[in-house]
Write a protein that binds this DNA or RNA. Structure first.
Lengths: 171, 171
DNA sequence: TACATTTGTGTAGTTAACTACGTAATATGG
DNA sequence: CCATATTACGTAGTTAACTACACAAATGTA
């Protein structure tokens, strides 16, 4: 019946590819949503908006740590937001190396409108995935893979097989 | 207690970003696994190995359709596999435009070894996510987002709010 | 049968993440 | 207090997906 998708027929081997596909489709749709609403912002800027709304001022590295991204990714994100006038930058006073980031007035003015949209997205997904506990399952996957990554798990499984066949030879 | 991850605190807004992060970490770990095992193959080649093992010969477009990727992605993947000697190519006889792809002898010889490793990965993840039905949940997310995408769901939710406030004004 | 359309492949350019490395500022320790 | 290490940021280059467009071959149609 739904034999359509080859990747689905592969089981967990296709897991990562499928996760990427889903996330790409969200990203793509998010971009279209912003466009359709006439907003000149990009899908992942919400991360910076949200954390700078909460913390007022943060350095590049602080943001990178808090959101678990590499600092170059944070720089790219925020550079674009600076170009669009939503983030401003000031060199650290005590430590001349750090660059502090904060939201501009323009950002704060736009925030209510943006949050209205993010809330709508939030509720839409919460409604869509409530019964399958989407968020909880993803959280659990993160937790487990954080604890022990794919490589270690696969190696462990391979090792078990080697052990089994060694035992067979011994017996 | 586990207040560590800012994205997790955001709910479904961070959903796509987190999915991407998980899939990136799988990809990264997969690459390390192959390296550690001394295999000169790349993480996503399994898709092509698997489908060409099953179907023997397929064109670029046929593969793209079957695995739900864009055809340029298929070309990039298979070009690398051709360079590594795992895939060969022949122009279609009836239709001069199509390029048929199939596994080389080298690929067929390596397949048992590769499948051993893929099986180990499969079992490792099946074991890790059995109790939370990881695969089923992902399948369900795919199915639902395929049926109605994020943009439409969010727009619908936004529209409901507009309607509500209109009604309020009327009342 | 000539012309328009469709189809299959190929190429170029975009995006969003990453690692690796370079550089400048600060901190440390003998 | 100078040399070395560490830290924060910036830049360059990689990866894997995508869309948009170009072009050639095949198909359909008037």
């Amino acid at each position: 019946m739904e034999e359509k998708d080859f990747l689905q027929s592969l089981g967990y081997i296709g897991f990562a590819t499928r996760l990427k596909r889903i996330s790409d489709s969200f990203l793509h749709d998010g971009r279209k949503l912003y466009k359709e609403l006439g907003l000149d912002i990009e899908p992942n800027w919400y991360i910076i908006f949200k954390i700078l709304k909460l913390e007022k001022k943060l350095s590049v590295t602080e943001i990178a740590e808090r959101v678990q991204m590499s600092h170059p990714s944070v720089i790219t994100l925020t550079d674009n937001m600076i170009a669009a006038g939503y983030v401003k930058t000031r060199r650290g006073r005590v430590d001349g190396r750090v660059r502090m980031l904060e939201l501009t007035r323009k950002a704060k003015i736009r925030l209510p409108e943006l949050e209205k949209m993010w809330d709508a997205g939030e509720v839409a997904l919460e409604t869509a995935f409530r019964d399958i506990n989407g968020l909880e399952v993803i959280g659990e996957i993160e937790r487990r893979m954080n604890h022990k990554g794919f490589k270690d798990r696969a190696m462990h499984e391979l090792q078990k097989r080697v052990n089994r066949s060694t035992k067979h030879k011994k017996a």
